[in-house]
Each structure stands twice: as structure tokens, then as C-alpha cells.
Design a protein around this nucleic acid. Structure first.
Lengths: 329, 329
DNA sequence: CGCCATGCTGCAAACGATTGCACGCGGACG
DNA sequence: CGTCCGCGTGCAATCGTTTGCAGCATGGCG
């Protein structure tokens, strides 16, 4: 790793300054010089020391990504999209797991901020005040969340919910249970409102099943309420919970979709391979990850308005939804 | 971000050198000075500019992690473990996805190398020559793979395989199909050998079902051969494939475990929530990720011998394995 | 033929931290 | 009381790159 610009300059018989310019601002040097420098670079296998450049320019060429929990199956696809896009932009990704502690998020941003050009906050649990603080430290983009002046990438749930409800209605369901996620979660609130709106449009009744942990266990826990309420169809906060619910219902001797129809949310990978495969509302996670990186890389001039990028979600009909046992259920 | 060591030094009324020492080598300064500097740091909210330090010391405080595919459910848990450990060591993680292209791995290492203190290569597809080249660029640790002089973290498959075969034998299975992964994969070879050895010990017959893609589709594709060979029990290269196989068998009207027993491998999260839940050989991915980071952070003096850290795998009995229809199947 | 604009190039000063070296001061010891 | 030792501190060089400024040609134009 000992080859510096000095060496290159010496070999090309120019000054360090010229060598630097030949590489950074090719237009500023003559063609002949540029070629000589380039040749020296190739021969020596020179690669610039990023820290030195960063020290001057203040840009690190690295973006941070904070996810609440790497084990949450929602994030891998998002990371994949982000990573592809980052590579495309010639930028690296610094990964951090907030370990589901909302109080931990801001400190995390604090340590990350000096080392990156911007941070992607995925479904941050932190409050508005903390977001403000974060934004003061570095450029921020949000996923699955909006905040007045910050750039954000979020799904447009309406299309998907509409599709799901329409589908259920066509199967004679009129009374649809909603299994909620954590009560205080930002997306829970949003999703509820969207469901209410779509249900209103489509004239179906929404029954609140309650709030549950966004885990397989949480889904299992919802089973009892679902049965007590004698629901024929439920829309679940996310696929992981839907999978838990599916398992619990099966264990209680209920058949899906013959007895109960289940619609999940997110379309995580395993939703397609459950038995029956899960009907769900697909959220384009990969595209969202990619868009978020674009937002961070782009000229901060557009930062002004704090654009929100909306991604259409769509209902995906699979095997977990079927005709209501009693019409109107 | 404008606060430099200079400012701190000025406020504490010491030289920059002393300020630096107060923070880096506390033993070198008097208690009074150290406290004054610390106070200045706190009041100003100073945080050191890493690039400047890196420029001098050559250490970036960042480790690279290269995974073949972020969407492969094997890796999230591994990343989680790595990330936890990295944070514990005060080190950051640079994430890179090789996008399943073996030729892409070395270039990736090349771009990563100058920016990191070491790289974690997860299940690298590259050959021995490329690994040598990589090792020349930076410190390397391997996961799921060994290479003479490199530090590596790999599962000890024997215990798990032994458990699985013993379990199957206790259910009267004597003839066990092995659904293989990609023929040229390093771990495929290893797993095959381990299976052969354990089968030998336990006196069960191993039937080769062939090689398939390590995906749900690959697992589905294996179904036909499994049926043709009239197998009563199969051990599958990984859980993802096992899930595919499970689905395909079900669709063909076969019941698991009544007709066929299936054992997966890895114990990914979704293995526990299939129907029936998948019996599998657990690989401690999180611990492996953590150990790999430890290996990279530790004093490179131990680098000499290229230690391999073995992690015990263990068979996990769930619902996909049952008594053989005909004893000896 | 002279002047000026223009295009390349080099000098040298940054950037913010770390670290070898030297200096001064005090106490301990002879 | 003199010498020496050692601790704590500051000076200044250094890491590798970028960049403002100035200098030097060269070529075009009047």
C-alpha cells in the first residue's frame, strides 16, 4: 500500500499537483501529460489514499445505513437494493443495527455521522426531536417514515390495501379483521388510516383485532382474538405475524383459507412458500432501498423541499384467501 | 463539524500535542491536565476526525464484509452477530454484496481493501489463487470455508449430521437420500464427506439424489428424483431447498413426515414456521459472524498459523421427520 | 513587432491528527 | 548543595492529497 501520488508524479515526471489534477480534473491538464500520468498510475498500481482526500474535501464516499434489526426479514431486500445502487454510484455502505432500541438510534447516528456523507434511517423509532437532531449531524434520508423537511421513501399503501379489500370482497367477505402491529409504531398509524379509508370506499366493515408484537409469536397471540371475533378474513400488519397466525390457526384445527382468509403485508420471501402461500400486500423493498440511496447521493440542492418518494404497493393473491363460509363474513 | 483538537487544546489551555495525548495515551499526562482536556472535549462536543487519524496510523477502524447474496437467508444472522461484535470492538462494518458472481469477488476485495483494516469473506466462491491475492491486499478472515494460512470460521458439521442420522435411524430409516447443493461449492464437498463418514459410523445407506441449485426452485426440482428413488428420508443441502422440496412433495400429494421425512440444514428463521416445521441441522450463524470479527480484530500476531474456529452444529428435531413407512426405508 | 489572453504547470499552504525529540522543572540521592 | 533522573509538556515534522496562486510559454490579434 506504499504507492503514493508522489511516486506517480515522479514516474510521470510532473509535480504532485499536476498528477492530482490529471486524475481529478482531466480537463485542466494537457492530453500528453494526462496520458503519462495515467500510464504511471497503471504501471505502479496506484490507488489513492481516501483518508487524505477525505481530510481535505470532507467527503467520505461512504453512506451509513441504520436498520432496527437485521433479523427482520423486511430489511435484507432493502439492503440489497441500497447496496446495488450504492455500488452503481461508487459509494460504500456502512451498516449499523440499532438492535430495536429506539433510544439507541440517535447515539448510533452520532457515531456514524462523522464517518459518512449521509445516513439512511430505516423505519426509525425515534421521535421528531431526535430526527431533527440527527439531521443537524449529517444528511438524512428516511425509509418507511416521513418527516417534514427530510427526504423520505415510503410505500403508498392505498393501492395495495384497496386491492386486498376488493379481492376479499369479491370472495364475499364484508367484515374484515385488522391485526395491528405495535401501537406506537409510525407505520401502524399510517396503515390503519389507509385501511379505514379504503374500507370506506369499498363499503366493507373493519374490525379491530388489537395490537400485537410484530413477530411470529405476536401473530400466534392474535389467533385467539381472531377466533373470538368470529372473523372470516383478516388483514395482518406484516407477513411475519401472518405466518404466526397461520400456524396458530392450523394448530387450533382451523383451515386456511376455507375457514379463515389471511392477508399479510410486505411480501417477504417466505410468504411465497408457506402452506398455503400467503396472499399479501407487496411493498417494493428493493426499489425503496435503491431510491433512498439515490436521494442521498443526489445534489443536496434538492434537499430543500424534503421530497417524499412514494412507491406503489400491490396486492398479491395467493392461497391464503378464499371464499367466505357465510357470505358477508 | 468544525470542532478540532486545536479548539479543545485552546480551551484547555494546553498544546494540541498534549490534548491528543490526554485522549489517546492518558497515562502520559498529569491528572489535572487530563481532566481539563476532557472537560473541554465535553463542553465543545468534540469528536475526532477519523480521516486525519487514519492518514497517520493507517488504521481505519472499519472492517469489510463480503457476502455472496444479501437475500440468502443464511447471512442476516451472520451479519447480526458480526455487527454486534464489531460494535463491541468499536469498529464499523462496510457491507458489500458480491451478487453471486465469483469473478466479482476479487475486484470487490480490491476496492474495499484500501478502506478497511480487514475483510470478512463469507462463503467465498473464489479459488485458492484469488484468495492468495486477496490476502496480499488486506487481512482476511473466512466464513464457511478454509484456506491453509487464513483465519477461518466454519461449522463442524459432524455433530449435526450424526444427530440427524441417528434420529432418522431411530425412526427406522436406513436408506437416506442426500439432496446436494451446487456441485462445485466448497461446502457441498465438505458436507458430502461428513455425511459419508457419519453414515459409515452409524451404518445407514446414503443415496445420492444429485446436485441442485441452492434455492426454493432447486429444492422443488429435487422432488422428482426423490420420488423416483423411492426415498423415505432425505437430508437436504440447506433449508431453503428443503422448503422447496416440502412444497413440491405436498403438491404431488405426498405427506411429510408420514410418507417422507425431510431434514434441512442451517436452521434459518423460517425453518421453524413451515408446515410441518422443519427438522434441520442448526449452524450457529450468529456466533460464527461474531467469531469472525473477533478474528479480524485480534492481534495479527496470531495470524501466523491461520487458526480455524470450529462451531458445533446440532440436529434440531421438529415436525418434518417421522417414522419410516416401511422399516429400513 | 508588441501586448494580452489563454492554457499548463509547479510551488506551497492547507486539512486534523499523531509522535519523536527536546526542554524545564521538581524531587531524590549522594 | 550539586547532580541526575524522570515526569509532563510543547515544538515541529509528518501522513497523502487537494487547491489557490503565480509563473511561464505560446499563439492570436492589432
Amino acid at each position: 500500500m506504499g504507492i503514493t501520488l508522489r511516486d506517480v508524479a515522479a514516474r510521470a515526471d510532473v509535480s504532485v499537483a499536476t498528477a492530482s489534477r490529471a486524475l481529478q480534473k482531466p480537463a485542466m491538464v494537457s492530453t500528453a501529460t494526462r496520458e503519462r500520468v495515467q500510464q504511471a498510475v497503471d504501471e505502479l498500481g496506484y490507488s489513492p489514499n481516501r483518508s487524505a482526500r477525505t481530510l481535505i474535501t470532507g467527503r467520505t464516499g461512504v453512506l451509513g445505513v441504520v436498520v432496527p434489526d437485521l433479523l427482520n426479514p423486511f430489511y435484507p431486500a432493502l439492503l440489497k437494493g441500497a447496496q446495488e445502487r450504492a455500488r452503481h454510484h461508487g459509494v460504500q455502505l456502512l451498516l449499523a443495527d440499532a438492535e430495536e432500541t429506539p433510544e439507541g438510534e440517535l447515539p448510533l447516528v452520532r457515531t456514524l455521522a462523522p464517518q459518512v456523507d449521509g445516513i439512511l434511517l430505516c423505519s426509525p423509532r425515534m421521535g421528531a426531536k431526535e430526527l431533527d437532531a440527527a439531521a443537524r449531524l449529517t444528511r438524512i434520508a428516511l425509509v418507511n417514515r416521513t418527516h417534514t423537511y427530510l427526504e423520505a421513501v415510503a410505500p403508498n399503501a392505498l393501492s395495495g390495501v384497496r386491492g386486498a379489500l376488493r379481492h376479499l370482497r369479491s370472495l364475499e367477505h364484508r367484515r374484515i379483521g385488522v391485526v395491528g402491529g405495535p401501537a406506537r409504531s409510525w407505520s401502524e398509524g399510517r396503515r390503519r388510516r389507509t385501511i379505514a379509508r379504503a374500507a370506506d370506499e369499498l363499503d366493507v366493515e373493519v374490525v379491530d383485532v388489537g395490537h400485537f408484537a410484530p413477530t411470529v409469536e405476536g401473530g400466534r397471540a392474535a389467533a385467539e382474538s381472531v377466533l373470538v371475533l368470529e372473523l372470516g378474513a383478516v388483514l395482518v400488519y406484516n407477513d411475519v405475524m401472518a405466518i404466526g397466525l397461520l400456524a396458530a390457526l392450523r394448530e387450533s384445527g382451523f383451515r386456511v383459507p376455507q375457514d379463515i382468509s389471511i392477508v399479510g403485508w410486505d411480501d417477504i420471501e417466505s410468504a411465497a412458500v408457506t402452506d398455503p402461500p400467503l396472499s399479501t400486500i407487496r411493498v417494493p423493498r428493493r426499489e425503496m432501498g435503491a431510491a433512498a440511496i439515490d436521494a442521498l447521493v443526489e445534489d443536496p440542492a434538492a434537499h430543500q423541499d424534503g421530497l417524499t418518494w412514494r412507491f406503489e404497493s400491490a396486492f398479491v393473491a395467493r392461497g391464503s384467501t378464499g371464499r367466505a363460509r357465510r357470505a358477508g363474513d
